[in-house]
């Protein structure tokens, strides 16, 4: 039987090594991002795939998130006689917190999983090796456009989520709960600060980087997760789970730092 201290030591060394590999992966991608030639068309294609094609999901979830917030906050605020504060409460919750987090989780489910599966299939079918054998850097073609597009697209989708959420909340607050239309928006203008908007944007940029980094890494190293289709499915699951956890952990850390 192996010595438990030895097992713990081996496990720790392996964990540190794998963390090192993950960070070196990001470092390589960030270096190549700023070294020409730039693959602008591939970047635009990713903006379309991660961004434009996620719009339906973002609009739907944004609307319902705003509507649920309106319902829940109204019943809480009414107890304190502060139902006029419903508009600002919804807006601040969405802009600082729920918009960036929920939008990031939705994009992870829709685009992040697809990124891992796409790169993973290219890995197991030797398409990545084919690129390397042509003296073309696979990072430049597969990883960098996805990371760059995510950094641009996540804040935009998060902003759309916020706006749709605020109007979803408006529909419930004004049409169902009887809050005045003017009250809903005028209070919002007074209480939502530029600092809140910037907090949301910073968070979204971080989430974009984290999701694209994790999903690309998991796809690129699919052969470490397992063989064939099973390896791709395992890598995709791990990418989505790891991205989602990291979104929530970094949300707390960023929230604590930016508050």
């Amino acid at each position: 039987m192996k010595n438990p201290v030895r097992i713990l030591g081996e496990h720790t060394i392996e964990t540190v090594k794998s963390m090192g590999r993950i960070f070196l992966f990001l470092l390589d991608a960030l270096i190549i991002m700023f070294v020409p030639p730039f693959k602008f068309y591939r970047f635009l294609k990713q903006v379309s795939f991660i961004g434009a094609k996620s719009l339906t999901v973002i609009v739907l979830t944004g609307a319902f998130a705003g509507m649920v917030l309106a319902l829940q906050l109204y019943y809480t605020l009414r107890k304190f006689g502060a139902d006029a504060m419903l508009g600002p409460a919804i807006a601040i919750s969405l802009i600082r917190e729920l918009g960036p987090v929920l939008a990031a989780l939705m994009i992870t489910g829709r685009a992040g999983s697809a990124i891992t599966a796409e790169i993973g299939i290219m890995r197991i079918s030797e398409q990545i090796d084919a690129l390397a054998s042509m003296a073309l850097n696979p990072f430049r073609y597969l990883v960098v456009p996805k990371i760059a597009a995510s950094i641009v697209v996540f804040p935009l989708l998060s902003a759309i989520f916020d706006v749709v959420g605020i109007f979803g909340g408006y529909a419930v607050a004004v049409k169902m709960l009887g809050i005045g239309s003017g009250t809903y928006f005028s209070q919002m203008e007074q209480f939502v600060l530029m600092e809140d908007v910037l907090t949301g944007i910073y968070k979204s940029i971080c989430f974009g980087l984290i999701v694209s980094w994790v999903c690309c890494y998991k796809g690129y190293t699919t052969d470490e997760s397992g063989y064939g289709a099973e390896g791709v499915s395992k890598a995709t699951t791990e990418a989505v789970v790891m991205s989602s956890i990291l979104i929530l952990v970094s949300d707390y850390l960023l929230g604590a730092f930016l508050l």
């Binding site: 079918s125 030797e126 398409q127 090796d129 084919a130 054998s133």
Partner: peptide, 13 residues
Amino acid sequence: KFAVVFQFGALFD
């Protein structure tokens, strides 16, 4: 200097 013909082609699908 190289080109490779991979086992299953490795064409970009």
